[in-house]
Design a protein around this nucleic acid. Structure first.
Lengths: 148, 148
DNA sequence: AGGACTCAGTTTGAAATCACAACCCACTGG
DNA sequence: CCAGTGGGTTGTGATTTCAAACTGAGTCCT
């Protein structure tokens, strides 16, 4: 247990920071759609299932946090599209690890959509240590709370 | 765009399946606490910031989905603790990739908690292709929708 | 024995969010 | 002219969330 704060404030945590941006019910599904190269409001609404008004506020929030960008692609009539920024594309590892976990621990039945890696095989995410390159195995991590 | 359903049903998707289990505001923070080896209701409530009644229903849901297990560890008085199951521990890659994304794209300032790998360095998650072992780079994935 | 305290919740009532449908405006196509 | 599309906005209830108070079994202090 790294830091058990004495008062009642929640733990200071980078994971919580990330979830404040993409931790609601729809945001990661929106990012997924943009990964799938959908760009238009109506398509995103249909494919995620998010209500249109909720989707409007989520898209604005994601724009504000720099995860996606909104661009006008037609002046008459005014039409807009949404695209991932670099920060948004950097969520790929999160989606890919979620996809693997969902496949192995939630879904029964085959994956409806697969990713193919340029190596020629289906891409299945595996997390490695950046420093030594080894894959993560159980019991290999130790917590180090930063002093103060 | 792999499958754009003609009707208004959302896309059939493993990521959505995963998010239905751990995609709400508190579940992944609960899992984080259990990774940090907290086990007791009150500690989880304090460290996540979740209201106690919401936490109660989230814990039940996670138990129902097999992510955590509830065990009585004292009979008099009755006391319970929560622990990760194997399925819950399998969420480590999700938390670690979220942590990295939060650090690089949300938080400004140093990480309050670090993970040390047994190799001796700080553990920073990097996603690799299980098949070929190469790290994921941009533009290396192609979508393959499963027919029907 | 009395009183304070802990843990794991449950209850309460207000506040915020959500879902759903309808509406709007600027076009386009027939 | 009329219907349809894209990208929303508005209005109305239903649902969920929240913070704080309360419970109840049991322990600790004195």
């Amino acid at each position: 247990m790294p830091t058990a704060p004495a008062d009642k404030t929640p733990r200071d945590c980078t994971i919580a920071d990330a979830l404040e941006v993409v931790g609601d019910r729809w945001s990661l599904l929106v990012v997924r759609e943009l990964f799938y190269a959908e760009r238009r409001f109506t398509e995103i609404a249909r494919n995620t299932g998010a209500p249109r008004d909720v989707l409007t506020t989520r898209l604005r929030k994601l724009v504000d946090h720099g995860v996606i960008a909104r661009k006008q692609y037609s002046e008459h009539p005014p039409r807009y599209e949404y695209r991932l920024t670099d920060a948004g594309r950097a969520l790929a590892p999160v989606l890919l690890t979620l996809k693997r976990w969902g496949h192995e621990h939630v879904r029964n039945g085959p994956d409806p959509v697969l990713f193919d890696h340029t190596c020629g095989h289906e891409f299945i995410a595996e997390v490695h240590c950046t420093a030594c390159g080894d894959p993560l195995d159980r019991g290999q991590l130790n917590l180090r709370p930063r002093p103060q």
